[in-house]
């Protein structure tokens, strides 16, 4: 049993000191479970978004179908993934795959709209200069879509940090575990420290990842600072 002093909700520091190693491990797995799907999701969403932009007729069906994916409840997706992928029920890959689906759902539209945001006269000029489609994408469309895509990545990443926590209910260890621990320890009376610690770490992680995306986008778009500085 924990001491009475240790049961104060704000004694998360005491709790952290006692379970340091375990909590850091949870934090680490929470981080990669959140980030990996964003990376894979972006790689998948890029070609799909490009198709939706390239062929105008394809935009409505692609965007609505991928958008619909977002409405599947996350718990359901976690549970059916092993069947779809042929993985073990406790394989973290299930979580990564499920969250990748959400990221794709979110980013396809973002990518398509980001590519569409390139001014028409810039596209005309680039085409007239003899850029191939691939060069156009790499040298003009993608660089100019960075601000829009980065905004989408921020939403997807923060959403993933909170969605990952749900995976604790199916036994994948990450910060969500702290909520379950807190819940179990509260049977004989409220015991908040692990729960508060979990919330604080989740928020801190989301903020950190968000900042990282903002910073990298800023590094990739020096021309934008010039414009806003005027």
């Amino acid at each position: 049993m924990t001491s009475a002093a240790g049961s104060a909700p704000w004694d998360l520091f005491g709790y952290f000191a006692d379970h340091r190693e375990q909590v850091l491990e949870l934090l680490w797995s929470h981080t990669w479970l959140s980030v990996l799907p964003v990376v894979v999701g972006l790689l998948v969403a890029l070609p799909i978004g490009w198709l939706a932009r390239r062929y105008r007729w394809a935009y409505p069906p692609i965007v609505s179908v991928t958008g619909l994916l977002y409405t599947i409840p996350s718990l359901a997706l976690f549970v059916i993934m092993p069947t779809l992928l042929g993985t073990q029920i406790l394989d973290p890959l299930n979580v990564v795959a499920a969250l990748t689906v959400y990221t794709v759902a979110l980013l396809v539209r973002v990518v398509a709209d980001g590519l569409a945001a390139v001014p028409e006269d810039v596209l005309q000029a680039a085409t007239a200069m003899g850029l191939t489609r691939l060069q156009l994408l790499r040298m003009v469309q993608l660089p100019l879509a960075v601000p829009v895509i980065a905004a989408g990545l921020r939403v997807a990443t923060v959403a993933n940090v909170s969605l990952v926590a749900i995976a604790a209910t199916i036994g994948i260890p990450q910060l969500g575990q702290l909520f379950i621990t807190g819940f179990q320890l509260s049977v004989s009376g409220p015991y908040y420290p692990p729960i508060v610690l979990g919330i604080v770490l989740c928020v801190a992680l989301a903020l950190l990842l968000d900042r990282l995306i903002v910073l990298s986008a800023r590094l990739l778009t020096p021309w934008q600072r010039v414009v806003t500085a005027r």
Partner: peptide, 22 residues
């Protein structure tokens, strides 16, 4: 090919169409 043809033809339009990021 259209690409090769275009590289030998200069093209100037109304609002210049410069690449804003370069």
């Amino acid at each position: 090919s259209a690409t090769e043809l275009r590289r030998g033809i200069g093209y100037v339009i109304q609002h210049a169409g410069l690449f804003p990021h370069r």
